[in-house]
Design a binder for these strands. Structure first.
Lengths: 157, 157
DNA sequence: GTCCATGCAAATGATTTGCAGTATC
DNA sequence: GATACTGCAAATCATTTGCATGGAC
């Protein structure tokens, strides 16, 4: 059931190891959820959307389990929560690959059509250094949302 | 009832003009709400907190009115919504002063104690330019959240 | 066998909405 | 006087929780 032996960020085996190392149990629901997310890379899914996707393969799953599994995956840093101000929390596969947890991306939110684009680039190291210098705050992660108008909607503005 | 003729971003008179220009009515609730927010600059208040503050001066106000006024103030760009992942929306006086809507600040969210610091500095022009070049997306605004550990909590990490 | 995880339904909590009364223009 | 705004209560919607059953170790 794996695609290229991997499900986005981690392989099924790595996931099982992760769960085990945290004293968590390996359940079919958890496996199917990560696998389902892995089949939708780059998407920003709501809990409800994940629920509907998972249900096709595991019809008896409950929405509460999806929420609980989301929490587990968040704690394992396998997914990230994103919020585009539309009243729902969304989740995406964590993009971190190496040990440094790097590979950040920003979200470009179009105020015209609501579309969300991703932009891969991290120019915030300088900023983080400056903050550390000035305030003693040690930055470990960041989230950047850029609002504006996409190419299609830009003409109107 | 004004403090130095201003309430943070706009004066009472500017606010009245703004409302009038949008065909909105000038009500005591709206005036008191902006004034109250002006008395708490730099804070990130929830609707409930604003409600409690306003009630001391205007006890018969309803929470629904606070929510509705928040929407009005957002549309007038007098306040901004911020979300620190604690399940509540928060609002702060818009910092924009000049016509350019500049004067941006970032939020430093401490993962240790939950404290939120502000950091004044905008190094994102370069990033916005690069995005425009590469994707045709026209950035008009942005929100940056930096997670990490404040000076006090930093030792433990 | 123990204990954690699941599914369901009920509970929660923030925000929104309907409506009748009230204030602004 | 017409219309937009308010206050209250009820409704809504996402998310969480309690509890009895089921599955993992």
């Amino acid at each position: 059931m794996e695609v290229n032996g991997s499900m986005g960020t981690v392989s099924t085996d790595e996931f099982k190891e992760l769960l085990k190392s945290k004293g968590l149990k390996i359940t079919s629901q958890r496996l199917i959820m990560l696998e389902t997310l892995g089949r939708h890379p780059g998407e920003h899914l709501t809990a409800e959307e994940i629920y509907n996707l998972v249900k096709t393969e595991h019809p008896e799953i409950g929405l509460a389990t999806v929420y609980r599994t989301i929490q587990v995956l968040m704690e394992l840093h396998l997914i990230d929560r994103v919020n585009f101000d539309d009243g729902v929390e969304r989740y995406e596969l964590a993009h971190s690959t190496g040990s440094a947890g790097a590979h950040h991306h920003h979200h470009l939110i179009c105020l015209g059509c609501g579309k969300v684009l991703e932009f891969e680039e991290d120019m915030l190291e300088g900023l983080e250094l400056k903050i550390a210098e000035k305030t003693g705050f040690k930055v470990t992660d960041h989230e950047v949302k850029l609002y504006g108008y996409c190419k299609e909607c830009g003409g109107k503005n």
